[in-house]
Amino acid sequence: MSHTLRTRRRAAVVLTAALLALGANSAAAMADPGAIPGSHSSDTIGYGPELTDEAAAVAYGLANPDVAPQGSNDWGCKPDAAHPRPIVLVHGTWASAYSAYAYMSPQLAKAGYCVFTFNYGRADSPGQGLVQPTIGATGYIEDSGAQLAGFVDRVLAATGAAQVDTIGHSQGGVVIRQYLKFDGGADAANPANNKVSHVITYGATNHGTTLSGLGNLLGAFKGTLGLDLNNPTENLIGHAGIQQLVGSPVLTALNAGGDTMPGIDYTIVGDQYDEVSTPYTATYLTAGPGATVHDVLLQDGCALDTSDHNSMVFSPRAVSLALHAIDPAAHPDLVCTTNPWLL
Rank of each mutant, 00 (worst) to 15 (best):
D74V: 00
G150E: 11
A97M: 10
G185E: 02
V269S: 01
L217D: 10
T281N: 13
T281K: 11
A95N: 14
L89D: 11
G258P: 10
I176F: 05
T267D: 07
D274F: 05
S2D: 14
V164R: 04
L334P: 08
G223S: 15
L108V: 08
Y120G: 08
L298T: 09
P106W: 06
G61K: 02
A322G: 09
N193H: 15
A109F: 05
L214M: 12
A35Y: 08
C336Q: 03
D80E: 04
G241H: 04
K78Y: 03
V115T: 04
L343N: 12
I87E: 05
H324G: 08
G241I: 01
G263L: 11
L214C: 01
S307P: 13
L245S: 05
P65Q: 06
A325F: 02
A256V: 04
D32A: 14
L251A: 02
A192N: 15
L130S: 07
F182C: 02
T166F: 07
W75D: 08
Y280G: 00
G34Q: 13
P232M: 05
M30E: 14
G185M: 05
G215N: 07
Y120I: 03
T201Y: 01
N193K: 15
A57G: 15
I200G: 05
D265F: 03
P279T: 00
P84L: 01
S315K: 06
T283Y: 02
